[in-house]
Simulated assay, not measured.
Amino acid sequence: MPLSLIITLFISSCSKKGIEEPAPKPSAFPPSTTTFSATDATIAFNSFNNIYYSPTDKLYYSTTEKKGIAAIWTQAIYWDIVMNAYERTKDQAYYKMITDMYDGGAKRYDNYNWDNSVEWFIYDDMMWWVMSLARAYEITKNQVYLDKAKSGFTKVWNGSYDPVKGGMFWDFKHSGKNACINFPTVIAAMRLYNITKDESYLTKAKSIYTWSRENLFDISKGRVADHKVGDNNPGFEDYTYNQGTLIGAAILLYRNTNIQSYLDDAKLAANYTKNTMSDPSGILPAEGDWNEQGVLKAIFAQYLADLAKAYPAGDYAKWAVFNANTAWENRDFGRGTMHRNYKVPCPTGIVQSYESSSAVAFMQLFAPTN
């Protein structure tokens, strides 16, 4: 669900003044090697599951109280974390969680019936799942996952794409075009292209990225806008998930085309997140004061890892490790859970799964190998 459901849309202007990449600030975070271990990453993931995962529902609870299931779109993000844990460890128990979570989602969300406008009431909710379904197919080769991803992508494309002005609408009423649907559409299209080699997916990905870069990205800063409504100026609001999905979209296009500008865009977005959105030491913002925004940095982690692999000369992995280390050192030692604000001890009372998720994601993606 986009942040536009939570906040009131506002429009702010932003001029685009060129494409020169600003020089990154000197790293303030320690350039040391990883301090948390692969074992720590496994403990963090298992602790997250012990506190938040429902074996009955095969989905995650919204809080430590275990009284309700987390929001529909965030379950797809949690599914990615499960896949990250499996890819890191090859633990068959985590592989089973991949298949279990698919079953849990199918039971709860009408077997991924994309025509059910009660369960699926916003386009980006669908696209988060499409992205994860395609990835689950890459891991398991379960044809059902691919079929659901393809049908979901088609449903969103047919309802969301603007054939006149370009870009994707985030809601059924076509009230605006948000980053949370446009860049994920590129990621989903590129994953499906890599699986199927169907050129139409690549064409769609390039088209949406071009529109999004022109309308939702300040290339002088590396800043991603949250939304654009009609012909108004883009609404610039700083959220890590928007920065992250631009990075993910750009890296997938770069890997498939070797066009340098895609990699440059990803670096710009990452540098803005590190140099402007983070605190002077490099700690990412504590998004998510008791709402779904707590999951945003888990999305950012997913695609920062892609950039770190594509451009190892950058210090992105060190930055990620510094954030994960800080959160891990401030964990609730009783429950093993971490918090959205990495700089403070995790509260011992009621905590949301959203708030605890992102540091777990960072640890799975940036843990050292055993």
Rank of each mutant, 00 (worst) to 15 (best):
K206T: 13
D231K: 12
A286T: 10
K267A: 09
V295L: 13
E237Q: 14
F183C: 02
L246D: 10
T257Y: 08
K228C: 13
A205S: 04
L216S: 02
V295E: 11
G294C: 01
G159W: 11
S212I: 06
T276E: 15
Y241C: 05
T257L: 08
D279H: 07
S278I: 03
M168E: 04
G159F: 08
I259H: 10
N291A: 06
T196P: 03
Q260M: 13
K206N: 13
S175H: 13
S278V: 00
F300H: 04
P163G: 10
W170Y: 13
I187V: 15
T196A: 05
E287H: 09
L252R: 15
P280C: 07
G166P: 11
L296P: 01
D279C: 12
D265E: 12
N233V: 01
Q243R: 02
N232S: 14
A286I: 10
A225Y: 06
Y209K: 04
P184Y: 10
L253A: 02
I259L: 14
Y201V: 03
Q293S: 14
I283N: 12
G230E: 11
T210P: 05
G248N: 08
A266V: 00
E292T: 12
G288P: 08
P163C: 12
L216A: 02
D238H: 11
A179Q: 06
S212C: 05
D279L: 09
Y241A: 04
T273P: 03
L216F: 13
T203E: 14
H174Q: 15
A298H: 02
N256G: 04
G222I: 06
Y254C: 01
N256T: 08
P280K: 01
I181Q: 08
G159L: 09
F172H: 11
L263G: 01
K206R: 13
G159P: 10
S261Q: 15
A269R: 05
A286K: 15
I187K: 00
L253M: 07
G244T: 05
T210F: 11
G222R: 00
I181M: 03
G288Y: 14
